[in-house]
Write a protein that binds this DNA or RNA. Structure first.
Lengths: 221, 221
DNA sequence: GCACAGTTGTAATCTCTTTGTCATCAAATG
DNA sequence: CATTTGATGACAAAGAGATTACAACTGTGC
């Protein structure tokens, strides 16, 4: 699940980013509409959180630009205060929801959950393949009866693999989802972290679940 | 199952009533504390949903009046965002759970379910995990046979953790719930208070209950 | 009003884990 | 074989959390 936060105010941006990361989402953050479009050109996001009031390219500009490019990603707008006109404008431009600042983080989460439910992306309680289970909510991984301790990155990586059960995920795709855009060709982070994951998840067990598809990437089956 | 909703704002009252009726509950609705006492004299309820901020007889008054009359019915308080300090008051007065406005209806339902599950019927509510017990009504904490003295903040923190038994609570969520702090990323209050809590609750015992989930937050297990 | 004890948040420091990089080794490919 | 691709192990920097110290504040008893 990857989000884009577009917000000029540093403090709010940090607040949003940190909170979402703590929830286990991948987050990119842009400071204005122009930067946002840059990110959008490079990545696919599941949700965009968009501040209306920004100095250079504001939220309205970004939103209409987005929809003009046939981008269907859900958008939650952040507005400074409640006003009917902006609400109407937002709706006609294609925003999915609103939040009036200041808001509690749990409010935002509620909206996010609502949108995900609407678009049928609701997280299953627990991801599973054979005797391997991953519980995103409790942040727990088990293989059979054994509890497995994973680090943050390992957990995200495994979660990604399990969410795409059976599919082959290319390194490029993985690094886009789990790491920032800046990493691209010259790094073997994915390989190394797959190694670390295997050490905990596969090595101690006879049945291997993480497979290498040479020249393509990795997959769980 | 019969509920009493006490809420002065018409819109919120209707929202709650309608929602609960749709869930198949019987609902009475009162606009202030005085009316509420009237309903309570006439009926027995399984649960009371009580707004703190009301013009005439507010939630505190109603709650203490209730408990003074030896009424053991579980109470969910609805608090405005600013009123964290008053939560301490709520605890001493004997509220069973809290919900900070605005909230999603599903949140309310979750709390209701939790309360009903916990209390089975009208048991005195005690939050418990292994040999650690917390009694919100009495404002008491015990580990095994040992009584543990907690400060107000420590108590709120432990209560929050116990109410979300097993779940990972992010710092953002915790600081929002316990401190009403929003948009503040650079403080370590949560960490420090977890420390203080651990010193009293975990340090003297071999079995640790408060766990750190790196990069995500804390959880009791 | 004053001294004292207890509570709390901030901030500085310490400690240990995590994580990306790189060098090297092994295996597949052709 | 030679070459490419992936696996593995070591390492150091960054990061996250733990812990301690301290000062502001609160309330209580005298």
């Amino acid at each position: 699940m990857k989000f884009l936060v577009v917000e000029d105010d540093l403090k709010t941006r940090d607040f949003l980013t940190k909170g979402l990361v703590e929830q286990g989402y991948f987050v990119d953050a842009a400071a204005n509409g122009a930067d946002a479009m840059g990110f959008l050109a490079l990545n696919k996001y599941d949700l965009i959180i968009l501040d209306v009031m920004m100095p250079v390219r504001d939220g309205w500009w970004t939103l209409s630009e987005l929809r003009r490019n046939k981008c269907e990603t859900p958008v939650i707008m952040l507005t400074a205060r409640e006003s009917v006109e902006s609400r109407v404008q937002g709706l006609t431009l294609g925003a999915d929801d609103y939040l009036v600042k200041p808001f509690a983080f749990s409010e935002l989460m509620a909206r996010i959950k609502a949108i995900m439910r609407r678009s049928g992306q609701i997280k299953p309680e627990v991801l599973q393949i054979e005797d391997l289970e991953l519980d995103p909510r409790r942040h727990e991984v088990k293989r059979g009866a054994d509890k497995i301790e994973l680090t943050a990155k390992e957990f995200l990586l495994l979660e990604l693999l399990l969410r795409h059960n059976g599919e082959v995920l290319s390194r490029t795709f993985i690094s886009e989802q789990v790491w920032d855009v800046r990493f691209d060709t010259d790094s073997n982070v994915v390989d190394v972290n797959i190694r670390r994951l295997r050490a905990k998840v596969d090595d101690p067990y006879p049945r291997k679940l993480i497979h290498t598809i040479r020249g393509r990437g990795y997959a769980v089956r």
